[in-house]
Design a protein around this nucleic acid. Structure first.
Lengths: 121, 121
DNA sequence: TTGACATATGAACAGATGTTCATACATTTG
DNA sequence: CAAATGTATGAACATCTGTTCATATGTCAA
């Protein structure tokens, strides 16, 4: 460890910030959700599903993935409650879990758009 | 590859969803941002900074990290424009880059809260 | 200029992650 | 029931990631 000499430079601010940190049982799932969205494959899937409900086969086509890879990633999104699904015979339809997910996607787009002239490559 | 036999089950939906997919130069940075927030250490840092502006030493204290680890993670958040910073002598103060970041954090909290009784462990 | 200190960075290592391939499961049809 | 088809899953592998440790940079004070 190598904390700065004067112990803590701004004691009061550190206290305030510490109080605001989510409890571990919140922070964990939260990080998991972002991690899930932090993969281009899964992010593509989420964007695709933000358009409409799709079956695994559709998603694979839209995202240019094997159905196996698609299924693996859908499992992750499912477990994290980022997507929901319903079965109709042997076909499984997926969709986004709630509006929070859509909103997160939207806000992130807005954030990126603001910097698009800088980050474009 | 192993696409389903009937080629594409729902041609029109696949077209709509495909059109909605962000271009690669948007999707890439977007995934990078989520990936950055998908690490508990960095997510902690972002939450801490959502409280107030903090110096590296403060952040290390709040997040219970070595200053080296803190600095490494701040560099990533900096490059992704998730945080901004200003120097005051030898002390460097960090804060969140914009309101989109705050909003993303908030929405994700709301999402998790909705499922807290299920996901709590 | 020299020492002290806040922050940054490079290398390296252990652990995590996404894909592929093979195979299993479930549902429909004949 | 058997075959066909849509989806799911386990193992394995190469790649990526976050931390630590050592060291470097930049700023202030004496």
């Amino acid at each position: 460890m190598d904390f700065c000499q004067e112990k803590i430079i701004h004691v009061e601010k550190v206290r305030i910030a510490s109080d605001l940190l989510p409890k571990p049982y919140i922070l964990g799932p939260l990080a998991e959700i972002f991690k899930a969205l932090g993969d281009q494959t899964r992010l593509k899937i989420v964007f695709a599903l933000s358009a409409c409900e799709l079956c695994v086969c559709d998603i694979a086509a839209v995202c240019n993935l094997s159905e196996s890879a698609t299924s693996h990633q859908l499992k992750i999104l499912r477990m994290l409650k980022i997507v929901k699904f319903r079965k109709e015979g042997k076909i499984v339809y997926y969709r986004l879990a709630d509006e929070h997910v859509s909103s997160i996607i939207k806000q992130s787009m807005d954030h990126v758009s603001e910097y698009k002239f800088v980050t474009m490559y």
